[in-house]
Design a protein around this nucleic acid. Sequence first.
DNA 1: CAAGGGTGTGACGCGTTTGTGACTGCTTTT
DNA 2: AAAAGCAGTCACAAACGCGTCACACCCTTG
Lengths: 224, 224
Amino acid sequence: MDVVNIFLTSELGESLEDFVHDQRRFTFDRLGPEGPRRLVEGPMWAFVDWVMPELAGLEMCRRLRADARTADAHVTMVLEEDDPEDRRRALRAGADDYVIGPLTRTAVLDRVLALQSRGVERQATRRFELGALTIDMAALQARWNEQPIVLRPNEFRLLRFLAENPNRVLTREDLIAGLGKREPPIDERTVDVWIGRLRRAIKAAGGGNPLRTVRSLGYVFDLS
Amino acid sequence: MDVVNIFLTSELGESLEDFVHDQRRFTFDRLGPEGPRRLVEGPMWAFVDWVMPELAGLEMCRRLRADARTADAHVTMVLEEDDPEDRRRALRAGADDYVIGPLTRTAVLDRVLALQSRGVERQATRRFELGALTIDMAALQARWNEQPIVLRPNEFRLLRFLAENPNRVLTREDLIAGLGKREPPIDERTVDVWIGRLRRAIKAAGGGNPLRTVRSLGYVFDLS
DNA sequence: CAAGGGTGTGACGCGTTTGTGACTGCTTTT
DNA sequence: AAAAGCAGTCACAAACGCGTCACACCCTTG
């Protein structure tokens, strides 16, 4: 039986340790700005508070996703109130879902127990396939017909965003926003360079060119 | 409050209702040949099985698109196996994406959560059909009987504007204004060239000539 | 502190798009 | 029948948009 590793940014962890009887099935760890204190194996679940003493919850979220050790953790964002805009931001930052706070012990355990039933299946669905292209969120790797595509972090994010919106023209503005680049404002022409680098990487892996340029508008991930 | 309305053609719906904790965030409905059983508001998501008892999945797909109530739903086609030809057919019929079956509960929820959050806003009038002509505003692509029409940016804008005002004579002035050309003032005779190029492009895709000239007045998109 | 890879930006060059004038042929008017 | 009006088409030059490169500035690593 896998041990579920639960990370929390709040102090709820200690209280939970007392609460849970079967210690073998869960570990709890405090989640600070620099990530988890110890490395773990098995499924991970992070509860990230919207407001944190040292770091914004959104930023925490992004760091978890960027860090290879925690990239495939299930991230639940804890919102204080039910603001649709905040929910969108949370999910954009990489959160898998959210709860409207305050976080209670039972809310945590309900979700975690549900995770266990989803458990193994979940990792399989964290990868998706579009034609010859496979994107593995957990491993942060993309393949073209089993052939790995060597991508830099930004290129991976770009490919992912494009692939999540197939057959839809994305403007340069969409793409910049989709990759969460706000500060400082990014020059739209920079997107062209991103696309160029991504295309070259796919080509280097023997792939075709699923990225179609739509003149004067943007780019599309062509699925067909 | 954004509620995501999920339609399924399979029996998975009931099983999902038990599975989801937060009922306020999702509704589930069985999708029969005559469409959804009840009208809903908010984002819609349909999962359409390739094979269905009473109706082919492709036909279901087209009906969803043709029905104004469900025209802007996100349609995911569930394929049994990974056949490139089927994938293409699905997308042509109006599907936004597809999964290779069988459909699991986690596959549904993962996709909905991921795409709902990370996707780009859908515009309401994404796709419209006039006779043999299909205009896909999301992919910015036009087809004549499934055959893609290769259009330059200005030609696409022109076709779109004409198709938005079918059976109505548009003067050259209307067309120039409709395409948003102000500076510098465009010579009216230029419109003739636009029309000529558009006609040639449609013809090259094996299409007819839906653009009728009205002497001394302008042009009409003939719907018939 | 040095080394190295990742990333944003300005600049350059090339191919494509597009508005226009001219020519042609058809239609309407005188 | 001649003249005038109108639309279809072609060729061309200018403008535009995109791909690419080199470089500078990070930020991380040793």
